[in-house]
Amino acid sequence: MSTLHVISHSPFGDNRLSSCLCLLGPNDGLLLCGDAVYALQPGSEPLKTLQAHNLEQRLFALAEDLQARAINSDAVNAVDYPAFVALSLHYDKVNSWL
């Protein structure tokens, strides 16, 4: 059983991201959208934490939210909405950190 975790809150305002990373299973994916993409800000603590988890092909971000915040990161797979739909089907469940 695999889960796609979806976070939309900034990692600088609460501990959703760190809580999520504690719970993230070996087959789970993580999709950052909205202000959560600030976790990919170069040189930031959240980015270091993400990199320490070696998510690689399991870390995604909504392309439009990266673009809106001028974040260019090669640490993440940028996805559009059709790819978001496909991701939600690739994993068995979708858990949104509301």
């Binding site: 939600s88 469940k93 950190w97």
Partner: peptide
């Protein structure tokens, strides 16, 4: 449904 997807927050 096969998938429930929730949207909320910011």
């Amino acid at each position: 449904a096969d998938r429930l997807v929730c949207f909320g927050g910011d």
